[in-house]
Design a protein around this nucleic acid. Structure first.
Length: 386
DNA sequence: TATACCGGGTTCTGCCATTTCG
DNA sequence: CGAAATGGCAGAACCCGGTATA
């Protein structure tokens, strides 16, 4: 493998002039320092001329083509990699093959994150083992790589990865939490330890400011409720917290309750999106004759409502209202908004068919699994008045 | 025993900008 | 200086079922 790679390097240099002509390129520096041959002698000597930096390594390209890599995509993503004289594409491919990745997956990985081929096997093996501390099988890792090659390959700092695992464990996250975290937000583990620490410290600070008594437990609970939090910027999270606090005029205990509960999820919405949804919801409620406190209560009870974009949300609300449900009922049982507009529409139709009386029976029926809903409808159809 | 309550599962990368490195 | 490393951003809900409880 290594030998092949070396041969390739030699081979490629001899084509550099031709390549230069084929690929655009006006040297930014005096030609004399750039347009030189390299290694055609095979020597690695101190005066070995440099491969023109604007020229791609032809035998690397050949290897990539052979591996089925989308070279065009790779070039667009990380052009520098294609110009490198020494890379490890074949060994890396072999390595991944050995871990159970298919050729197609490998090609896709390299196409999307070309820098992967600059890693050494020793380095990869070590990194793989570190991931295996969290995952049970190679197959799980392969599937993450296939999904997000960048998460695994972007950093070459294995020591940092190890420290991250230690750090996250020290927060009280157990192995199941770590597994969920690495599965869901693998980028977390490629963050610098410092960045992760910053977020955790930020969360702890917020918590203490609000008068909480166990900051570490708080950080842990926010992370396990919102697995994406560590790949957000503290700037974003802070802005969202402040926005919620001021828009809803939350007291410290209220804000604390929100963040400790399901409110953790909405922290990673983009600032503008959260603002937009908040404003839109406020307007809609006001149009429906609700009070300012209704908005606050609604969000405290059902923070995920802020995930729903204005058009979807208004659509859902209108749909429910048109179906004979009052806004008061919705405010009391906001979880019905969990379901898709289509689902709600269909259920309302069904319920209307069997003459369901929301005034008498409430609207909880809308918040149930399809199995349970169907069973209920069947029963009602059999014995209509009840 | 039917419903209400509640929490869990699913899921999130791929690009650009900036900083650091060699 | 170019490449590598790192940080940050936009995008946008839905569904299921265990179990307490009336």
């Amino acid at each position: 493998m290594a030998a092949f790679s070396g041969r390739r390097a030699l081979f490629s240099v001899c084509h550099s002039l031709r390549l230069r002509q084929r690929f655009r390129i006006i040297p930014l520096q005096p030609a004399s320092t750039r347009l030189t041959w390299r290694n055609c002698s095979g020597s690695d000597g101190s005066n070995a001329p440099k491969l023109p930096s604007s020229t791609e390594n032809e035998s690397l390209l050949e290897n990539l083509n052979h591996l089925g890599v989308d070279v065009k995509m790779a070039r667009q993503r990380q052009p520098g990699v294609l110009r490198k004289a020494l890379t490890n594409e074949l060994a890396v491919a072999q390595f991944l093959l050995g871990k159970g990745a298919s050729r197609k997956v490998i090609a896709s990985i390299v196409s999307r994150y070309p820098r992967a081929i600059t890693r050494s096997i020793a380095h990869l093996e070590q990194r793989w083992q570190l991931w295996r501390n969290v995952f049970n099988t190679d197959a799980e890792i392969v599937s993450i790589l296939d999904r997000s090659p960048e998460s695994f390959f972007r950093s070459s700092d294995n020591e940092n990865l190890e420290k991250n695992i230690t750090f996250l464990t020290s927060l009280g996250l157990n192995s199941k939490d770590l597994h969920r975290l690495l599965t869901t937000a693998p980028r977390t583990f490629s963050n610098s330890l410092d960045l992760n620490k910053q977020m955790v410290e930020f969360l702890e600070d917020i918590y203490e400011e609000l008068g909480g008594s166990d900051p570490q437990e708080f950080a842990k609970s926010v992370i396990s409720k919102n697995l994406y939090i560590l790949i957000r910027s503290t700037k974003r999270v802070r802005a969202n917290i402040e926005n919620l606090k001021t828009s809803l005029k939350l007291s410290n205990p209220e804000l604390l309750r929100l963040l400790k509960g399901n409110g953790a999820d909405i922290l990673d919405l983009s600032n503008e999106y959260l603002k937009k949804n908040l404003n839109s919801l406020e307007q809609k409620l006001s149009l429906l004759g609700c009070k300012k406190d209704d908005l606050k209560e609604l969000i405290m009870n059902y923070p995920s409502i802020l995930f729903i974009g204005p058009s979807t949300l208004n659509c859902k609300l209108d749909c429910l209202l048109k179906g004979g449900i009052t806004i008061k009922q919705i405010l009391e049982k906001p979880k019905v908004l969990d379901y898709s507009t289509q689902n709600i529409t269909e259920r309302l139709k069904e319920l209307q068919r069997v003459g369901y009386d929301f005034k008498k029976k409430g609207i909880n029926i809308l918040d149930s699994s399809s199995k349970r809903f169907a069973a209920k409808i069947e029963k009602l159809s059999a014995a209509p008045e009840e």
